[in-house]
């Protein structure tokens, strides 16, 4: 249980002249739940997008489940097969039904027969509690339902790590809970999760560690209790005072 499944070391990234990520070191153990928070523009999204190679980086190394992802992104495909991602804006495929959204990658990436892929997809749709809507198009569903489909879609690939980039920020308040509940269920089943979110309740309840980022650096990382009760850094205190007001 204690070997790191994601290991980020000496990660540096620039957008042109702008140094977005500065010397990031982070180890995530199998089954660990990490919440990443920090002010807007601090590089949270960029960091987790580096883990599945949606962004390239200039220096450092990321190892996911023993697969090495250097600056030249050699093992992109292998890494992406192990890592699932949920986006702020859902990014479901609007021209495909919910079921087809969930079977596309298993069929075309893992070469699983259609029938098996559909059975698996239905299993995950049941887990996120929307099996009845399998034949609807994403555009016919509420935001909360869409985001749960997006979670199911990522799970159909049996990822070892799940990345969440502000999964509830685009949702109306009453739908936030249904998505968070799904994520809590997932955490209880032992999924390794990296979650960028401002839902501090979720962080308290689920996270093993809370990581605070500012200006492209990890400034503080601690257990939720310590993090909220006794923040070390002045920047962290300011952030918490703003967000927990």
């Amino acid at each position: 249980m204690s070997d790191p499944i994601v290991k980020i070391s000496g990660l540096n990234k620039w957008y042109g002249e702008f140094h977005v990520l500065r010397d990031i070191d982070l180890e995530v153990k199998k089954g660990e739940r990490i919440v990443i928070c920090g002010p807007s523009g601090s590089g949270k999204s960029t960091l987790i997008r580096c883990i599945n190679a949606l962004e390239e980086f200039q220096e450092g190394e990321i190892v996911v489940d023993g697969i090495e992802l250097g600056p030249n992104l050699k093992h992109v495909d292998a890494v992406r097969r192990e890592v699932g991602m949920v986006f702020q804006s859902f990014n479901l495929f609007p021209h495909l039904t919910v079921l087809d959204n969930c079977t596309l990658a298993p069929i075309w990436v893992r070469n699983i027969p259609k029938r098996d892929a559909e059975a698996t997809a239905m299993k995950f749709l049941e887990r996120v509690k929307i099996p009845h809507q399998a034949n609807k198009f994403p555009g016919q569903m509420s935001g909360g339902q869409q985001q749960r489909v997006a979670i199911a879609r990522a799970l159909t690939m049996n990822p070892k790590v799940m990345l969440f980039d502000e999964p509830t920020s685009a949702l109306d308040p009453e739908m936030v809970k249904e998505v968070l509940d799904t994520m809590v269920d997932l955490a209880e089943e032992g999924m390794t999760m990296l979650v960028v979110t401002h839902e501090m309740g979720f962080a308290r309840e689920v996270a093993n560690r809370v990581v605070f980022m500012d200006a492209g650096q990890i400034i503080e990382a601690n257990t939720p209790n310590e993090f909220f009760a006794a923040p070390q850094h002045a920047r962290t205190k300011l952030f918490l005072s703003q967000i927990l007001r």
């Binding site: 992406r80 986006f87 990014n91 495929f93 990658a105 075309w108």
Partner: peptide
């Protein structure tokens, strides 16, 4: 939207598959 290609890439679809299954049909 760019998110479509990113979601497909995150699922492990190659450029060809993303283009022919996600981008072009839309």
């Amino acid at each position: 939207p760019r998110g479509q290609g990113e979601a497909a890439a995150a699922l492990g679809l190659s450029w060809w598959k993303t283009t022919s299954l996600i981008v072009l049909p839309q």
